[in-house]
Design a protein around this nucleic acid. Structure first.
Lengths: 194, 194
DNA sequence: TCAAATCTATTGATTTATCAACATTTCTAC
DNA sequence: GTAGAAATGTTGATAAATCAATAGATTTGA
């Protein structure tokens, strides 16, 4: 049996309320009273699940990171290997993910509530990138950590730029941009040579 | 103390789920199982509040009608009399109301689940219109029932046309249209004379 | 037509959320 | 600095929602 419905609902309501408040207010200034008011829950319910608002935020971040990983892996869920050339924009779900959590990302990235959040996101990307290479079975002598870190931060950069633009482009457009950058013939090599 | 939060939340979830299902499915074919699944509630919770899905629909309609009445009265909540000339488009909240319940109206009007729903809506308008006349203290010899019925059905007609258009105009535009029609100088008289 | 699947309606033990009250602690304004 | 207000953290009795298991009624498709 999964966790009780009421628990999930209550926790989700608290997380939604936290995101809502973080849109306009600094995390440090948000009170638990505020959160439960917006979540339409009794204060006792908060304390039944969390000790502090920091614990709530931590779990919220975990949730988003899990969904992020799921979205990243979505294109090749039913295939053994990821073939870059066959990767179409429609298959890239990661921008859809960011867009669906746009309020969260906008708040969390601009906030100083979680100092290492960008590092955390890029770490997730890095690990995902490494997993890709395991699947592909790269045999070259290039250090995998360099490659994964390179692509992880590149993707993060693209997303940060998108966030800072106020999400004025569609997820589909962002996916097209990513494809265009990655598949631009010999771009990497030329840069390395020059 | 007001009603328990959980009751309101559960009832609202059931109503939302019903509207959601009515968008694509015929009311008669909707099962209680479907409703509770979409509402993310246990079946027992449904039966704690309602006997049948008809009872749920009935209460949903009541809710919407209450909000409708509130919206209609919003423009002159803090004034003793309604002065047509001062009735600006922005003050007319009724189209905002319909728009906010657009899914409900679209489903309920096109559905045959509630045969008398249009009649019910026009009755609400009629009563509201009558209340207006009480406030205005009309002394003419025109039968109030005629006048109120006239305006009630006129407004309903406007809204039905809007619904059938698939809500392709904004509430503000609809309000402007209503103002334009009502304030068109001598329109009524000329029609009656012709 | 008949069997399988689905839906309905109800049940009781259990878990969860609620409310309101409380004593502390922390802000805030004067 | 201090009084008043607001937030915190905890509590226990109560009410609501949950789950899972029923048995019976309907629907469905082969």
């Amino acid at each position: 049996m999964a966790t009780d419905r009421r628990i999930n609902k209550s926790k989700q309501a608290l997380k939604d309320a936290l995101i809502l408040r973080m849109e306009t207010s600094d995390f440090k200034k948000i009170t638990i009273t505020e959160i439960v008011q917006h979540a339409n829950l009794n204060r006792g319910t908060f304390y039944k699940h969390y000790d502090t608002k920091e614990a709530l935020l931590e779990e919220l971040i975990d949730d988003v990171m899990c969904d992020l990983i799921e979205s990243y892996r979505a294109p090749y869920l039913h295939s053994d290997a990821l073939v870059i050339k066959e990767l179409t924009a429609s298959k890239i779900k990661i921008f859809e993910h960011v867009y669906s959590y746009s309020k969260f990302y906008r708040a969390i990235v601009s906030s100083n509530a979680v100092p290492g959040i960008q590092h955390k996101i890029s770490d997730v990307f890095k690990q995902l990138s490494r997993d890709d290479m395991e699947i592909l079975g790269t045999t070259s002598n290039v250090d995998r950590d360099f490659v994964s870190s390179y692509y992880a931060h590149a993707l993060l950069g693209l997303i940060l730029e998108w966030i800072n633009s106020g999400f004025k482009y569609t997820p589909a457009y962002m996916a097209e941009q990513l494809i265009a950058i990655v598949t631009f013939p010999g771009a990497d090599v030329k840069l390395k040579q020059g």
